[in-house]
C-alpha cells in the first residue's frame, strides 16, 4: 500500500506541469524540442514493487499472504520513443508447509519453507507523447519472462526441494516522471503470466492454481535522460 501511495505522490508531483505545457504549446512548432532524445540512451535503474500473486490462495496458505515485495534492477535502453529493457527482480519469503483439505481449510504444520522467485525480464515498448511539459512520460510494453523458482523446506530429502525455471510473458504500462535532468522516477503496473509452473503438487494442486505470475505495482528510480 505504501508503494501505491508513493506512486500516487510521484504522479502528483507532476500536477504543476499543465501551466508549463500550455506555455510550451504556444511556442512555434519549429522551435519545439523533440519529445525524446534521438540518440541511444542507456539508463540503469533500481526497482521495488509489490506483487499480488495470481495463485493467491496458494501463496496465502504457505506464506501467509497472497502478495509480496520484490526488489531488482536493470538497464533501460531508449532511442526516441522506443525502448528495450532488461531487468531482474527477486522475491523471497519464508512460510511453513501446510495441509489443505478438499474444502480449502489450511492447517500449518510448523515446517519452515523458503520460497524465492527471480524473474529475468526482457521487454520492449513505446513511450507516448510526454505530458505536463515533458515531465511525465507514459509508456507501454510487453516482454518475455524467465522465472527461476526455488522452494526449500526443512526435512527435505533428495527430490523434495524445487529449483526450476519457467517461461512466461508480461505486459507493462506506466509513466516516468522526470525529477531532474538525469533522474526520473517511474511508476508501473506489470501483469505477468507464468502458466503451468505450479499446480502439479503441493498446495497449488490443492487449490488448482498453476500460475506463478501476478499483478505488480512497481516504482523505479531511473538514472539517465
Amino acid at each position: 500500500m505504501r508503494t501505491v501511495l508513493l506512486a500516487l505522490a510521484l504522479l502528483g508531483a507532476a500536477l504543476p506541469a499543465p501551466a508549463a505545457a500550455q506555455t510550451s504549446a504556444r511556442r512555434p512548432a519549429a522551435r519545439q524540442a523533440p519529445a525524446y532524445p534521438d540518440r541511444l540512451q542507456i539508463r540503469p535503474f533500481v526497482s521495488a514493487g509489490t506483487t499480488w500473486f495470481t495463485a493467491s490462495k496458494t501463496f496465502k496458505a504457505v506464506l501467509g499472504s497472497g502478495q509480496g515485495q520484490d526488489f531488482g534492477g536493470g538497464l533501460n535502453l531508449t532511442q526516441g520513443p522506443a525502448w528495450i529493457e532488461v531487468s531482474a527482480r527477486r522475491f523471497s519469503k519464508s512460510g511453513e508447509r501446510v495441509f489443505v483439505t478438499t474444502g480449502g481449510q489450511v492447517f500449518p504444520l510448523g515446517i519452515d519453507t523458503d520460497i524465492t522467485m527471480t524473474p529475468l525480464e526482457v521487454a520492449a515498448g513505446w513511450r507516448f507523447r510526454p505530458l505536463f511539459g515533458a515531465r511525465v512520460r507514459p509508456q507501454l510494453g510487453v516482454g518475455y519472462t524467465r522465472l527461476r523458482y526455488e522452494e526449500s523446506a526443512a526435512f527435505a530429502q533428495d527430490g523434495d526441494d524445487v529449483n526450476e525455471s519457467f517461461n512466461g510473458f508480461h505486459v507493462v504500462g506506466g509513466a516516468e516522471v522526470r525529477l531532474h535532468r538525469w533522474v526520473g522516477v517511474a511508476g508501473e503496473v506489470v501483469w505477468t503470466s507464468v502458466a503451468d509452473a505450479i499446480g502439479k503438487g503441493g498446495a497449488s494442486q490443492a487449490f488448482d492454481e498453476d500460475n506463478l505470475g501476478g499483478t505488480s505495482l512497481r516504482v523505479k528510480l531511473v538514472i539517465g535522460r
Partner: peptide, 10 residues
C-alpha cells in the same frame, strides 16, 4: 509424507 505436508509447488 503426511507429516511433512504440502509446500507451494511440491
Amino acid at each position: 509424507a503426511t507429516l511433512r505436508g504440502l509446500g507451494l509447488a511440491r
